[in-house]
Simulated scan of single mutants.
Amino acid sequence: MDVSATVVVGVDGSPSSFDAVVVAAREAVLRGSALRIVHAFSRQLTKVPLGPSGVAQPEGVLDNEAQQTAEEAAARARLAQPGLEVTAAVVAGSPLSVLTDASQGAALVVVGTRGLGGVTGLLVGSVAVHLAAHAACPLLVARGRPAASGPLLLGVDGSDVGDAAVGWAFAEASLRGAELVALHAWNNWTGPVAVGPGVQMPPVYDLDTLRAEAERTLEAALAPWREQYPEVRVVPQLIQEYTRQALIEASEEAQLLVVGARGRGGFAGLLLGSVSQAILHHAACPVAVVRREQEPEHRYELE
């Protein structure tokens, strides 16, 4: 295959970030690319008191620990994927700015879901959300079940913005030789829902009409990519359910969940709203977020 861009992974020394290194190493091998490990290091962020004495670590100790973190991550990557080209660097700055810069020209940037608190941690609520909005390439958050098995799950909303995620998901399914489950949750505001005291039932609509519209939306989103990737087996799924719940439940069987950065309906404001927070915190598999600007320009050419 002709995919030369580097896969970048951010590490901070936490178990979650080291797990992300293993996932990133596998992604690099899939793409035939190198792996670049980045440890963002800022003395202002890491000078915290240690123990009851309240004495901060000397600068030399902090520098050594940062370098050891990067080297340990590189060793784990090489152990997980022997023969993989791996580089590791300690870069001055905050994780937000360092990883955003590192995403330039990268095929993928990978982070974990938990870090070392608010000091240098790669947190879902900060670094991952920031990268999803500002990285120059798709973001993969390594969480849940890391095993590369099962179908690839795609959340479809039918928006122009979401089309980038659809194209990226087709390319990934082709690359992995995986089945693609394209899920469209169409009953976010209508139909029977559980209500409690003081909660009113939503207006009643013609569910047959809504279902037919949802079918057209899903097929329109998939059709052009089916033609470009005829080898990908696609399983369209229409689910009368709230978007977040449908995707979280379906992620139990998936090897990767792909969503767009913004969309309409249940995906509106994905990066900032409750849907994204629910997915990033509760999905049972890694989650990839793709923005409109990151729509694939070409398909992977497999040897």
Rank of each mutant, 00 (worst) to 15 (best):
T69H: 03
A70M: 05
A70C: 07
A70P: 00
E71D: 15
E72M: 13
E72Y: 14
E72W: 11
A74R: 00
A74P: 06
A75H: 11
A75C: 06
A77T: 01
R78G: 07
L79H: 07
L79Y: 06
A80C: 10
A80R: 07
A80V: 07
Q81H: 08
G83C: 10
G83E: 03
G83P: 04
L84W: 06
L84G: 07
L84S: 09
L84Y: 12
E85P: 09
V86D: 01
T87K: 11
T87E: 13
A88M: 12
A88Y: 02
A89W: 10
A89Y: 06
A89P: 03
V90P: 06
V90E: 04
V90D: 01
V90Y: 03
V91K: 14
V91I: 15
V91M: 14
V91T: 13
A92H: 13
A92T: 15
A92Q: 11
G93Q: 09
G93E: 10
G93F: 14
G93D: 08
S94F: 09
S94Q: 13
S94C: 04
S94D: 08
S94R: 13
P95V: 09
P95K: 03
L96A: 10
S97P: 03
T100N: 15
T100V: 09
T100R: 15
T100L: 10
D101L: 12
D101Q: 13
A102T: 13
Q104S: 09
Q104K: 10
Q104C: 10
G105H: 12
G105D: 09
G105F: 13
G105N: 11
A106P: 01
A106D: 02
A106G: 12
A107Y: 01
A107M: 03
L108H: 06
V109G: 00
V109Q: 00
V109F: 04
V109K: 00
V110L: 02
V110R: 00
V111F: 01
V111G: 03
G112F: 01
T113K: 08
T113Y: 04
R114Q: 15
L116M: 15
L116F: 14
L116W: 09
G117V: 07
G118F: 14
G118L: 13
V119K: 11
V119M: 13
V119P: 05
V119L: 15
T120E: 13
T120M: 08
T120V: 10
T120G: 07
T120H: 02
G121N: 02
L122Q: 05
L122E: 02
L123K: 03
V124I: 15
G125D: 14
G125Y: 07
S126W: 13
S126V: 15
S126N: 14
V127M: 09
V127G: 01
A128N: 05
A128L: 04
A128S: 15
H130I: 09
H130T: 12
H130D: 09
L131D: 02
A133I: 07
A133W: 07
H134Y: 11
H134V: 10
A135P: 02
A135M: 12
A135F: 10
A135T: 06
C137E: 02
C137H: 05
P138V: 12
L139V: 14
L140W: 03
L140C: 11
V141H: 04
V141F: 06
V141G: 01
A142Q: 07
R143F: 05
R143I: 02
G144V: 11
G144R: 01
G144M: 04
R145K: 14
R145T: 04
P146G: 07
P146R: 06
P146N: 08
P146C: 08
A148S: 08
A148C: 04
